[in-house]
Amino acid sequence: MTTTHLLYLHGFRSSPQSTKAQLMAARVRAEHPAVHWWCPQLPPSPAAAARLIDAGTADWPAARMAVVGSSLGGYYASWLAGRRGCRAVVLNPAVDPARDLAAHIGEQSAWHDPAEHFFFRADYLDELRALQSDASADPTRTLAIIAKGDELLDWREMSARYAGARLHLLDGGDHALSDFPLLIDEVLSFLQLAVDQES
């Protein structure tokens, strides 16, 4: 069944202005105008982010929706896919963000606007743990693109977490997936996006 609703979830300190989100948005607009695209600015609180995602996709048809998530957004994407049983693509996904972000408690600046600041609170770590999900019931509905050259996350840990999914391991690469322009066709093919209203 083709996808008619697509959600993109950015990573920690990132935004809908990320290179990958912008590239995805442009391709969806140009080639799949009938697809409902949503890439929200996620709040720092994981619980608030989860509520936003839940509310924004509440009326989406589970069988015809999909989610793409990068880094922390990949963690949220797996949580949502587990709840809705939808197709998911995770890009260098965070596996244990409560552990990894413990060192980032305090004031942070937004990646795409350093003048914008937010406070990452200690209790957000518990909120992250509450969103921990097992691999989705049908891992074949997940594509995980993982760079062995990721400088922030351990590719072995990511690969183990998504062992049942379709895995694309990049020999080099980086956390930002600078090679995403070369990977986007694979992502779009996996998502099976509707081409028109009748698809």
Rank of each mutant, 00 (worst) to 15 (best):
D154L: 07
D174C: 01
Y162P: 02
S189L: 15
D150N: 02
L152I: 04
G173Q: 04
A160L: 14
A147Q: 10
T140H: 10
H175G: 07
A176E: 10
Q192R: 13
L143D: 12
G149N: 04
F180Y: 11
M158C: 03
Y162M: 06
R161K: 13
I146S: 01
A165D: 03
L177N: 08
L188V: 15
F190T: 13
Y162E: 05
S189Q: 15
E186I: 14
G149F: 05
G173S: 06
I145N: 01
L177S: 09
H175W: 00
R156D: 03
G172T: 09
A147E: 04
L193T: 12
D174P: 01
V187E: 05
A160D: 15
R141E: 02
L167Y: 01
A194H: 13
L188D: 14
G172A: 14
P139K: 07
R166C: 09
A160W: 12
L153F: 00
A144P: 02
E186P: 14
R161A: 11
D174N: 06
F190W: 13
E157I: 11
Y162I: 01
R161G: 06
I146F: 03
M158V: 00
T142N: 04
P181Y: 10
H175S: 06
I145H: 00
R156F: 08
L153N: 00
W155E: 06
P139R: 04
L169K: 06
I184T: 15
A144H: 03
L169Y: 10
R141S: 01
L191E: 02
D179F: 03
S178Y: 07
G149D: 06
Y162L: 03
D185G: 11
L143V: 01
V187R: 00
L191K: 00
E157S: 15
A160N: 12
G164A: 12
Q192K: 13
G173I: 04
W155M: 11
M158G: 01
R141L: 09
S178D: 13
I145P: 00
L170S: 05
H175I: 06
A176Y: 05
L153P: 00
M158T: 02
T142S: 05
I184K: 13
L153Q: 03
G172L: 12
D150H: 05
I145C: 02
I184E: 13
L169S: 09
A165M: 07
H175N: 04
D185E: 14
D179S: 14
D179E: 13
I146A: 02
R141C: 03
L170Y: 04
A163S: 15
K148I: 07
P181F: 09
D154R: 10
I146P: 02
A163C: 14
M158S: 05
H168A: 12
G173T: 07
R161D: 04
Q192A: 15
E157N: 12
A163T: 13
G172S: 11
H168S: 10
I146G: 00
S159P: 13
V187N: 00
E186F: 12
L167D: 05
P139C: 08
E151A: 04
F190R: 11
L169M: 12
A163N: 12
R141K: 08
A165E: 02
W155F: 14
L182Y: 11
A163W: 15
G173V: 03
Q192Y: 10
E157F: 05
F180I: 08
A147G: 11
H168F: 10
D154N: 06
F190K: 09
E157R: 14
A147Y: 09
